[in-house]
Design a protein around this nucleic acid. Structure first.
Lengths: 110, 110
DNA sequence: CTTGTAATTAACATATACGTTAATTAACAT
DNA sequence: ATGTTAATTAACGTATATGTTAATTACAAG
């Protein structure tokens, strides 16, 4: 599963996660995305390439600038893989919760 | 966030994801986890260490063997980060859907 | 056509990741 | 003590990741 590999690997870098967080507020140019960081333009360019290859962002040229926006596909892929485990660990917490509830509970919403 | 870095980095490797998949069916020893793979025991040992440092698994000694099991903490951390984006991309699909319906509906259901 | 701006690619340095084999620790048995 | 099994750590090779500066492509404007 190449998409999962590239998606998770892309998400492992804090700079790339920050870029995604920025894009969650709306599309932006490459220059705008790079401005908050103290790394060179080529470094940003490479981060964007990694995100694009992971299907986490998409880019389109608009005149002289490249507009970047989130691509839900990669996010969805990663999330669906993890969702398979959500059942497992939420079940674990439920069991813990049930264990703690073995005595009367003073104030808890039904 | 160190946990997010290590969790996503750990999930980027297919061998480690396979190990997690195996552990989702129940706890296992290090030897049992390594058996399906054609890589050396030290390689498996390192994968397990990476998973443990990412809080994706936990280990405990039982006599001569080390028993491994899933640790929900790391999974939860990764998933919660992605959940922040689930709203976004499910919203994107909603907007696409609304656009295709081309119905002048400025009101939203609360 | 020349110049300026946006962004990428090229070439390179260095750190980290992942695999190997050999040596070591830990628990258990004889 | 000696040996066996389970697993790790040590030492090392190589591939990939991430950053840099310099050169290049793509577009816009005079």
């Amino acid at each position: 599963m190449q998409t999962l590999n590239t998606a998770f690997a892309a998400l492992a870098d804090p700079t790339r996660r920050a870029i995604l967080a920025r894009l969650a507020t709306g599309e932006a140019t490459v220059g705008e995305l790079g401005a908050p960081f103290s790394i060179s333009a080529p470094a940003i360019s490479r981060h964007l390439r990694v995100l694009e290859e992971a299907s986490l962002i998409a880019r389109s040229r608009h005149g002289q600038q490249l507009i970047c926006r989130l691509n839900p596909e990669g996010l969805k892929t990663a999330q669906e893989w993890l969702d398979h485990y959500r059942v497992f660990w939420s079940g674990m917490f439920d069991r813990l919760d049930a264990h703690l509830k073995q005595k009367p509970n003073p104030e808890k919403k039904p």
